[in-house]
């Protein structure tokens, strides 16, 4: 090996990307050549210097925010494709919730929370303020916490704060007010992605208080339409029915009546829809009046169509 070859191989030598043979040749050359030995020492010191660059780890909350905004962007993307989206929704409803995909999501979610907590600890101030999310526990407790999942979501009725307890070797709690963006992100994320219906239901309970906020409103509507668990869908429906009526709610309830596999959910949805129906809905209601499998839904739609024809636009303002 000559000096030029040594120089070319130097980074590879330091990154251990050379074969045993090449490595030995480098070592032999460095032992014999003073100039190259100096270059090696210098580059090695450069690596020491480069190691001083602070390594920036994205925090868990930031990851959640990114996921959330990606989620929204993907929603927009799908809506842009109109028909394709509907086909997708239909396909999704036909498919029973896959246990394996759910388990995987759970695993990844647990992993996702664990990651990012460690680096955060040094910066956590122990005194929680009302409008910020904080981690409680002593630094040492959290230092090696390996998060396995969420074990509890509990709103505190007195303060309005939400406490999220994570499964770990030691207990970890995230606490903060519902209007805190981070807390919202974690909850919205849990509602959409978490595998345990009990946790989703608790999350839903926690979110109800903030249903007036757009992000939470969207998450609740999403749960009503997409949660694999009937009980959670019904509970989401219950949380959503009292909100200010708007096109998003009308569409969501119509979709639910049209597509939900469960009679109970469709019955509950058609009650709300009929109460708020306006004439634009007449064709859809007419179709449902003949096609829905459930007699109650058919009857409710028939009545709603009749009512709309009789009263003209009187009901267009919603609450009868």
């Amino acid at each position: 090996m000559n000096c030029r070859e040594f120089e070319e191989n130097l980074p590879l030598f330091l990154y251990e990307e050379l074969s045993g043979e090449q490595r030995a040749a480098c070592e032999a050359h460095a032992a014999a050549c003073e100039a190259c030995r100096t270059a090696l020492a210098q580059t090695s010191r450069l690596h020491d210097v480069l190691a001083e660059r602070p390594s920036r780890e994205p925090s868990t909350e930031f990851l959640m925010e990114c996921r959330q905004s990606l989620d929204e962007a993907l929603d927009r993307e799908q809506h842009g494709w109109g028909g394709l989206f509907r086909a997708w929704v239909a396909a999704l409803r036909l498919r029973p919730a896959s246990g394996f995909a759910g388990a995987l999501a759970l695993l990844v979610f647990g992993f996702g929370l664990g990651w990012g907590l460690r680096p955060r600890l040094a910066n956590v101030a122990p005194a929680p303020t009302t409008n910020s999310a904080s981690l409680t526990g002593t630094g040492e407790d959290l230092q090696d916490a390996r998060i396995k999942g969420i074990s509890r979501v509990a709103p505190d009725p007195k303060t309005g704060d939400v406490r999220i307890t994570l499964d770990a070797e030691r207990r970890v709690t995230i606490e903060g007010a519902l209007d805190n963006d981070r807390i919202q992100s974690v909850l919205v994320y849990a509602l959409k992605s978490y595998n345990n219906p009990g946790i989703r239901r608790d999350t839903l309970d926690a979110l109800r208080a903030g249903a007036g906020q757009p992000k939470i409103r969207r998450a609740l509507i999403y749960a009503m339409q997409n949660d694999p668990n009937v009980g959670v869908r019904l509970e989401a429906l219950d949380a959503v029915r009292g909100l200010d009526w708007g096109p998003d709610l009308q569409q969501a309830f119509l979709d639910t009546v049209q597509h939900d596999k469960n009679d109970g959910v469709r019955v509950a949805a058609v009650d709300v829809l009929a109460r708020h129906a306006d004439r634009a809905l007449t064709p859809a209601l007419e179709r449902l009046a003949t096609s829905d499998a459930c007699p109650y839904v058919r009857m409710k739609c028939t009545n709603a169509v009749r009512q709309l024809a009789k009263t003209g636009d009187d009901l267009s303002n919603g609450n009868q």
Partner: peptide, 30 residues
């Protein structure tokens, strides 16, 4: 997951995202 996502299953796509997105974000912040 990939096959399902290719068929338009968003839930599968979400799971795929979560398999890789931490590494992607870590690179992004750097």
């Amino acid at each position: 997951l990939i096959r399902r996502a290719q068929e338009g299953d968003r839930a599968s796509f979400d799971v795929l995202v979560r398999l890789y997105d931490q590494q992607v974000l870590r690179l992004a912040v750097q």
